[in-house]
Amino acid sequence: MSSAPAEEIPAEEIDLSEANHIIDKYLTLPGNLMPVLQGIQDSYGFVPRPTIDLVAERLNVYPSQIYGVLTFYSQFHMKPRGRYIIRVCVGTACHVQGAERIVDTFFGRLGIGHAETSADLRYTFEKVACLGACGMAPLAMVNDDTFGKMTVQKVDEIVETYNQRPM
C-alpha cells in the first residue's frame, strides 16, 4: 500500500515481538496510539518502519495518521539514533554563558551536526532550547547524565569518557 524508497527500510529484519507486546499492553486503552509509539521508541530507540505498519494494522489506525503524529512530536524518531544522545542547551541563560562555543566544540570533536547521528551509531547530537537547569548554565546532557558549568575542556573529557563506554 505504501511506497517508501527501499533505502529507508532497514536491511536487517526487525523483530516485531516487542512491538506486539507493547500493543497488547495498551490494546483496549482509548487513545492508545501515543503510549504505543512511545513504548516502541523506548524499546527500539526509534520507531522502525515495520512497527508503523504493525501498529496501523493492529490498532486500525491509518498509517498516514501515525506518520502525522510521528512528525508532529519532536520526541519521535523514525531513523536509528545513537547509543548516547548528547544534548546541549542553547536557551537564554546558556546562550549568554557561551553555549554556542560548547556546541561548536562538540561538532568538531564528534564530526556530526545538529540532529545528526554518527555513522557508528554511538552518538546523536542535538541543540535544545532549555533543559530547565539555568543555574548550571551552560549545560549539556548525555542520555540522563547532566554536566553543568560546561567548558571546552569538559567537552573533551565527556567525549573521552563516552568513547570508552560500551555500545
Partner: peptide, 13 residues
C-alpha cells in the same frame, strides 16, 4: 505532517 510553518498536507511517509 510536520508542525508549525513546516506543516503540510501529506501522505504516509
Amino acid at each position: 505532517i510536520n508542525r508549525g510553518i513546516e506543516a503540510k498536507m501529506g501522505t504516509e511517509f
